[in-house]
Design a protein around this nucleic acid. Structure first.
Lengths: 110, 110
DNA sequence: CGCTCATATACCTTGACGGTCATATGAATG
DNA sequence: CATTCATATGACCGTCAAGGTATATGAGCG
C-alpha cells in the first residue's frame, strides 16, 4: 500500500542481517576508513566489500567522501537510531521485569 | 571458529529482518496470543505463520505453552535485549552528537 | 596522454528463504 | 474410538541476495 517514488532503500533490519555488514559498521565505529582498509581485516574480496558498502550507503548507514584516489566511508547514526527507536516499546519488557523484581525484593525487606 | 553442537539457531538480526516476524512480535508485545489469533490480523496463511513462529521460537524470541487444543505464544525479551546490547557501543554516536551540540549551544550563550 | 592505483559494476552460480498446497500430529469430544 | 479442531511439517516452487572472477570507471602521476 505504500507508494515509493524512487528506489526503495532496503530496510534497516535487512541491512543488519548480514554479518559482514555488521563487521563493517564495527570497523567504522571508531574511525572512518577507506575501502582498502575495510577489505583488510574483513577477509572478503574487494568487490564484495564495495557491494556491502553500496547497500549500507543506500540505506543511510554510511556516507562517503572522495579523498584523492580513495573513498573514505563514515558511519551515519541515523538508521541505528531508528532501530533503537523500534526497540523502544519493547524495552518495558525488561525494565518492567526489573521493576517487578525490585518490588519483590522490597517486599522481602524487613 | 565457533563450534555448535546441535542446530545453529538463526541469529537475532536475521530473524528480525523478516517483516512478518516483526509484526508477530508487535502483536505479542501487549499480550500472549494463540496461533489462530496471530493468523487473523496478519493476512498470511496459517502454515506460514507457524513457520515464522518456529523460527522465532528457535531463536528464543518467543516461548509457547499448550492450552487445550491451542498453543499460546508469548514474547521472551532475551534476544531483543541482546540487540539492545549490540546497539550499546553505537549509542555514543548520537549521544556524543548531542553533547557536541550542547557544547556548541553553550558556547553560543552570552 | 598513457599508466596505475583505488574502487565500482557486470555477470554468473549457488544457497537460503518465504509462500502455498497438501498432509501429518495430537488433543479434546461425543 | 472416530471425528474434528488447532497447529505443525513436508514437498515444491520462485525469488533474491551473497560471493567470486573479470572488467569498467576514474582520479592522479610520470
Amino acid at each position: 500500500m505504500v507508494r515509493h517514488i524512487g528506489q526503495v532503500s532496503t530496510d534497516a533490519f535487512t541491512v543488519l542481517a548480514e554479518p559482514t555488514r555488521r563487521r563493517i559498521l564495527d570497523q567504522l565505529r571508531d574511525a572512518e576508513r577507506s575501502v582498502g582498509e575495510l577489505v583488510d581485516g574483513l577477509g572478503v574480496s574487494q568487490p564484495a566489500v564495495s557491494k556491502h558498502l553500496r547497500v549500507l550507503r543506500e540505506a543511510g548507514f554510511v556516507t562517503c567522501r572522495t579523498a584523492a584516489r580513495q573513498r573514505i566511508y563514515r558511519l551515519d547514526p541515523g538508521p541505528l537510531r531508528a532501530v533503537d527507536g523500534w526497540l523502544d516499546p519493547y524495552r518495558r519488557l525488561w525494565t518492567r521485569h526489573l521493576d517487578a523484581l525490585e518490588r519483590h525484593l522490597d517486599s522481602q525487606e524487613q
